[in-house]
């Protein structure tokens, strides 16, 4: 097990370095460097421009810039934002909190909806219920998230007034008791989580369903049945725990999908998060922030799938040999 963990961790770190290098390369190749934008204002003097270029090391060769950036990144220093002059890490931390809430809410919705439906579908493959669940999951996959968001916001938010129209909490949430504050947060979290979670629901239903079908057909379950165990006992004690492994394994696949969807959700629901920070930075060509957000989101993805792999291996020892 220790060797397996070591191997996976090393692979994840190597991947992270590659991802970081790729990010750096992409941004280097991008046109419209920020200094050029500054140069558009004739009242900004050449000395100021030169000073900025020197300050950000833009006069150095690309390899030197890369090496400097990598070593700083390893120390957790992501530099200063071009446009806001604040540490990138500080900006990212501001976004990370909101993103984490949204991600957690979406995953909660996702599993609460997908696990029961996947199990029901997997128990009776080919039945009418199975077909209905398939249509349900495909519908939410095919429906662009922002359309669902607009409809829900208009009906449940503007017309009925049941849910807030965005943001993470009420204006006076800070003055509430911690219980009320939590409830207020969940009230705000409901719609964005629902929209984001439903967009990936089909994926997870599929994993659970096919996993369960496979397990139910396995020798292990047949043996349990042969021993005369009741159907429910077979299901809950033998089949479901084994279905869990592939579901966990696919957690790593969900992360990039959710992070991508989150950008749009954050904009529609005025939710603070990494997606908004990254998008604004790209529009402004704020290179350190672009690098920071892209790197951080990739790191979240890599860590997520590392975690999933380790959990999977812990549950299912066979996976360690893979």
């Amino acid at each position: 097990m220790a060797r397996f963990i070591l191997r996976r961790v090393v692979a994840a770190v190597v991947l992270l370095v590659l991802v970081a290098t790729a990010t750096f390369g992409l941004v280097q190749a991008a046109p419209g460097q920020p200094i050029e934008l500054l140069a558009l204002d004739p009242r900004v003097g050449p000395e100021f421009r030169a000073e900025l270029i020197r300050q950000y090391g833009l006069d150095q060769p690309v390899t030197v810039q890369w090496a400097r950036w990598m070593t700083a990144t390893l120390r957790g220093e992501l530099g200063l934002s071009f446009s806001q002059k604040r540490p990138v890490s500080e900006l990212l931390m501001e976004g990370l909190g909101g993103s984490a809430w949204l991600m957690a809410g979406a995953l909660f919705v996702l599993y609460i909806v997908a696990l029961p439906l996947g199990i029901v579908a997997g128990l009776r493959p080919g039945s009418r219920v199975d077909r209905a669940i398939l249509v349900f999951s495909q519908f939410f996959w095919a429906l662009p998230g922002f359309v669902l968001a607009v409809v829900l916001l208009e009906i449940l938010g503007v017309r009925l007034g049941w849910f807030p129209l965005g943001l993470m909490q009420d204006l006076d949430a800070e003055r509430m008791s911690s219980m009320d504050r939590l409830l207020n947060r969940l009230h705000h979290l409901f719609l964005p989580s629902l929209v984001l979670g439903l967009s990936s629901v089909g994926l997870v239903i599929g994993f659970v369903r096919s996993g369960l079908i496979g397990v139910l057909a396995s020798d292990h379950v047949r043996a349990a049945r042969a021993r005369g165990l009741s159907e429910s006992r077979v299901l809950f004690r033998h089949a479901l725990p084994n279905t869990l492994a592939p579901v966990i394994q696919h957690f790593g696949v969900l992360m990039p999908a959710l992070l991508s969807g989150a950008l749009i959700i954050e904009v529609v629901f005025s939710w603070p998060g990494l997606g908004r920070i990254g998008y604004a930075a790209i529009v402004e060509r704020d290179i350190p922030v672009v690098l920071g957000t892209t790197l951080l989101s990739a790191a979240v993805v890599i860590m997520g799938s590392l975690l999933a792999d380790l959990l999977h291996a812990w549950i299912d020892p066979r996976a360690r040999d893979a």
Partner: peptide, 22 residues
Amino acid sequence: MRIVDVFLAFPWIFLIITLAAM
């Protein structure tokens, strides 16, 4: 396969935005 992994590690929308800017 490492190249594939690198591409897959990015949430696609960030990759596309960055490429579109490039």
